[in-house]
Structure formats: structure tokens, C-alpha cells
Design a protein around this nucleic acid. Structure first.
Lengths: 224, 224
DNA sequence: CAAAAGTAATAGTATTACTATCAATATAGT
DNA sequence: ACTATATTGATAGTAATACTATTACTTTTG
């Protein structure tokens, strides 16, 4: 039902899975190997048959953990945003409101999620790559409203709203904090994607460039 | 091979179709009805069987025009961006470089594509809705690099670069014009999407709000 | 009016996503 | 050690989808 990270727990909506993957070696292998496979071949070329082959199990066994691969992607997304949220809080909650805090938050949002204290082994770099490449597919889907109601995106939404709060602290007069927050977060995933596939549509080919781009954008936009 | 718009032609990459849909009544019905159906039910619930039923034809007949539904989506995307590009040029090429020109460009990018001078009937509002909802799926796909090489996204890319050029005119010192342009364009589609499905993650629930949000963002960011 | 092109009708294949059933194995409690 | 229970493996099968193939009918064109 949740991941333990030191003594902090990441609560993943339990209706995303049929059986908690953390609770067994097979479940843990499912998570670990699905990240490897999706990272390497993309979600479209990924299915439970291939995953079963990879971990030396069977399709039917995997179906006992997840209803389908889309739920698994939502699980991985929640895991990712849960770690990011934890890091965001950890890095910023003791800082004074202001641009320095906001930029610390932005930096944290792009950082590789720290997975070493998770109860099972997950490669943070691969997890981030999956999210950058595939997260849009997690919500651009015909069941979005129904799934949203069930809370499958709540961690992600909380992250957007937390960044929005930090924006508001910088400039309480600013009227578009939610839009700016979502623009920044969605935008960063998209800029990664562009850098990989439509190289000349972005100037940000490294985290550093993206950081500078956003720092300038935010500093100018939120000037009082 | 192209759409006639007064005397301007929108060249759509001819390898996107097997047989030009403009060239026959059936082809025109395919375009018109696919827009209606995708607009109404989304791309996931759309297939050539349903389309055939809708227009009183057969699956095999439709397959003579398009290899698959993804190509059809790419065709519709090219049609959309082609119209937008035309409008963008029309509205801005006689303006003096500067913020007024940039904001005119931004306004044009969100506007409903004018389809009345097209050689066949297409509802601009529906076409825009499809793009806002489904365009990400046109390029978040495992064949992206191969398709990009074939030029399936060239009109879209040209639009991003045109906006980037207008940004540069405002402030020639600005180092992130490509990123800013793609952020604006992708962002606007995303803000529409958020307004529809994750209401509280955006403050832009109308074109006017989005315009104000961007105007402020751009004015501040590009200040010399 | 004949040739050609375009379309309809029908059937069929391959793949994918998912379900059902039952046997084998491991684990836990007594 | 023995039984009940949970977990996984093995196998088969279903339904839907995306796409292909073939043939016949209809319309257009020279």
C-alpha cells in the first residue's frame, strides 16, 4: 500500500494494483523489470507477455498484480511523483519564501528521483526517463475523467499545486500561479522530449540549460 | 497533394496518404467524418470500421486512402498546422517587429483555423479540438524518429520556428527563443487539456485568460 | 462501347489484451 | 509431520482490433 523511504511512506492508491507488488519477490521483479523494459523499448513495445519472459514468469501471474499495463504505468507514475514530492518538501520546507526557494523547487523537480531508500530496487534515472517519455500517455486516455475521480493522479496534482504555492509566495499578486506551475512541469518533460526527437525546437539540451531558461523566465515573470 | 485556400496551397506530405482524399467524394467524406468522429469520441474509440459505417462505405475502401488511422491523424495535424501557418503569415508579415506583432502571432495560434476557403468542408472548431486533445499522440509514438525523417511533422516544426523568429525580433539577445516558442505552443494545447480534465491545475479557462497569461509572460521575459 | 479506375462485399489472418482453469509448489499454523 | 492456504506456473481459449486479399459491381473516360 505504500513505499517506505527512511520513515516516510509514499502512499500509492491501492486500487492501482490488484496485489501489492511490494509484498512479494515476484511483485518486485515486475516493477524492476518493467522499468528496464519500458525505459529501453518504450511503452508501446511493452506488454505482459514480454515482461513475463524477461522475469521468467507467466502472463497470468503478472495479471494477478496489475489489471493491465496502463495501470502499471500509473503505478510507476505515482511512484515517481511520490519520490519527487518527498524531495520537494525535504528541500524547500525550511527555506524562506522567495526566488531562491522557487529555484530550489524547480531544480528538485528535474533531479533524478532518489530511490536508494525505497523498499525495493528501482533505477531512478530510468524511472525519470520513462516519465519524460511516457507520462503524457498516462493521462491522454479516454478513461481520464473516471480515473481522475478515483484519485489516480492525485500525487501529481499535489506536486503541481505545491509548486504553485511556492510561486505565490514569491509574488502574492500573481494571478496565474497554477498555469505557470503546470507549464513549468509539463514543459520540462516536453523539453526533454524535444531535445531527444525534435532537436532544433528547443535550446535546452541539458538540465543546466533548462534551469537557466526557467530561472530567467520565472525571475522576469514574477518580478514585483 | 495540397489544399487550395484562395490561391494559397497547403502542401501536405504526399506519403501521408495512399490516395489523395481531396481527389474524390469518398476521400472528402473520410476527412469530414473522421473529424466529426474523433472530435466526438476521441482517437482511441475511433477506427476505420466505425468510420466506414458512418459514411456508408467499407473498411477496405478507406484503407485505399490511408495506411492506418495514425497516418490519418498525421494528415489532419498537417492540415491544421498548415492553416495555422497560413494565418500566422497573413496576420503578421506586414507588421513591424515587436511585442504587438508577437502577440498577434500568439493570438493567431489559438484562433480557430479558417476552413471556409478549403477545397473541402472541414469544421475548424472541431479540428482545433482534435489537435488540442490528440496531437501529442501524433508524435509520442515509437516511430517518431523515422516519421520525422520523412517530414511528417515539418509544417508543425516550421510554425514553431516562425514563432521563434518573431520572438527573436522582439529581443535579439534572448537565448531561448526555440524553447520559449515550443513552450508556448505545446503549453497552449496543454492548458486547454487541463482546463477540460484537471480544472484546478490551470487558471486559463478561456482563450482570453490564456492570452493574458502569455502576454504577461512574454512581455516580462523578453524585456530588454 | 470497351477499358480502366474506383468502390463494395466478404472473408480471412495475425496480434494483442485479457480470462479461465487446474496443477504444482511453497508457506504457515497446529 | 500434516493439513489448509496462498502463490505461482502452465496451458488454453476468447474477443477485439488492425490489416490484407480477392472478387464482383459500378462509374467514368477515351
Amino acid at each position: 500500500m505504500h513505499h517506505i523511504l527512511s520513515n516516510l511512506r509514499i502512499d500509492i492508491n491501492s486500487s492501482l494494483f490488484l496485489k501489492d507488488p511490494e509484498s512479494s519477490p515476484l511483485g518486485q521483479k515486475i516493477i524492476k523489470s518493467s522499468i528496464d523494459l519500458i525505459d529501453h523499448h518504450g511503452i508501446e513495445d511493452f506488454n505482459f507477455k514480454k515482461l513475463a519472459l524477461e522475469i521468467g514468469s507467466t502472463e497470468s501471474s503478472i495479471y494477478r498484480y496489475f489489471e493491465n499495463k496502463h495501470r502499471l504505468l500509473l503505478y510507476l507514475s505515482s511512484l515517481y511523483w511520490g519520490i519527487i514530492e518527498f524531495q520537494l518538501v525535504l528541500q524547500t520546507n525550511n527555506l524562506e519564501p522567495g526566488m531562491a526557494k522557487l529555484m530550489k523547487a524547480v531544480e528538485t523537480l528535474f533531479a533524478i528521483p532518489q530511490t536508494d531508500k525505497l523498499s525495493f530496487s528501482v533505477e531512478g534515472k530510468k524511472l525519470r526517463h520513462i516519465l519524460n517519455a511516457e507520462f503524457v500517455k498516462a493521462y491522454h486516455n479516454k478513461h481520464i475523467d473516471e480515473q481522475n475521480k478515483k484519485g489516480y493522479f492525485s500525487i501529481y496534482k499535489r506536486v503541481v499545486l505545491r509548486l504553485s504555492d511556492i510561486i505565490i509566495e514569491v509574488n502574492p499578486e500573481y494571478k496565474f500561479s497554477n498555469s505557470l506551475s503546470s507549464l513549468i512541469i509539463e514543459g520540462s518533460m516536453n523539453q526533454y522530449f524535444l531535445s531527444e526527437h525534435f532537436h532544433n525546437l528547443t535550446d535546452c539540451h541539458s538540465e543546466d540549460n533548462l534551469y537557466v531558461f526557467y530561472k530567467d523566465l520565472l525571475t522576469q515573470t514574477l518580478k514585483i
